[in-house]
Write a protein that binds this DNA or RNA. Structure first.
Lengths: 159, 159
DNA sequence: GTAGCTGCAAACGTTTTGCTGGTTG
DNA sequence: CAACCAGCAAAACGTTTGCAGCTAC
């Protein structure tokens, strides 16, 4: 604890998303532009998943001059620095979700209405690690989607 | 083992994939064509996952007159009768894997070499059911992919 | 015979890229 | 002021569809 130690927000290497993005851009000698900042801001407000198009629409509301290509390009950057994850639900559209810190979740998706619940189960998470270890894998990440029919839709059309 | 008993492959209601496909087609008043049979044959030889394009290439080797569209259309049929599953790995390409009988498995994928191990863990399978039930969902199917680095690739490039 | 199929090519929707002028560091 | 980026439109990508002739039933 020397007094020369500067006040840091967080003693860990954790950064805010904006800091992480800035750091990543600087590290790669890329530029911090208003567009990139705006896209990150709006992306972070997303509770769940957005397609590039949906995000583009929201971004455009705040800055109509922005182009679709910039959204795609920025999403790639966000994935590059670990702030966004791609999730694909086999409908041909890639969706993105914010990846904050070490947060992670899986999906419980209603095949009837598209309702999408984010779940996180410690039992499964741990078992996944065990499984990977059993095969000698170093587990980096995973994806689990459960598809079914939600309670509301079961009422509408019981099987 | 009475001698009158005809040699049946399996006393259960299990059918060979070809029988299942034939049944499905007849049931829906669709036609059994040489193309469909050929595509199924070649698809079933796949150990892991194929993209439509890869499958098309292999099919074309045996019948150059076949069209890409027929492969897509047949894959849809195979999914319809439960003989094929779609798996998407977020690279924009839909891959398909044979779904034989009631077999099911998840994936353990090496991000370095692409090696793909099929896994099935009862602990996880059961927990998934429990989770769905907790939210009132009727679980239809699921998809779980674990991504990491396999033992061999860890040697090549330890992190 | 007729419903359904095939192959082709054109259409489709999503994502990428080439370019030119503009902005960041 | 050099490298990088934005917006635009065109291209590219995987996939679907319309059609005219052909095939299974």
């Amino acid at each position: 604890m020397t007094k020369g130690m500067r006040a840091q927000k967080d003693p860990t290497n954790r950064r805010t998303p904006h800091e992480a993005f800035t750091f990543y851009l600087q590290e790669h000698r890329l530029k911090i532009t208003p567009q990139r900042r705006l896209i990150l801001d709006i992306f972070l407000l997303e509770p769940g998943h957005v397609s590039s198009e949906e995000l583009y629409a929201k971004v455009k509301r705040r800055d109509p001059s922005i182009g679709q290509a910039t959204v795609y390009r920025t999403l790639k950057l966000l994935m590059g620095c670990g702030l966004a994850d791609a999730v694909s639900f086999a409908d041909g559209i890639t969706r993105f979700e914010p990846h904050l810190g070490s947060e992670h979740h899986d999906h419980l998706i209603c095949e009837a209405c598209g309702r999408n619940i984010e779940i996180l189960d410690p039992v499964i998470e741990r078992r996944q690690e065990e499984l990977a270890a059993k095969y000698g894998f170093r587990l980096e990440r995973h994806k689990m989607d459960l598809y079914g029919v939600c309670p509301d839709c079961q009422k509408d059309k019981p099987s």
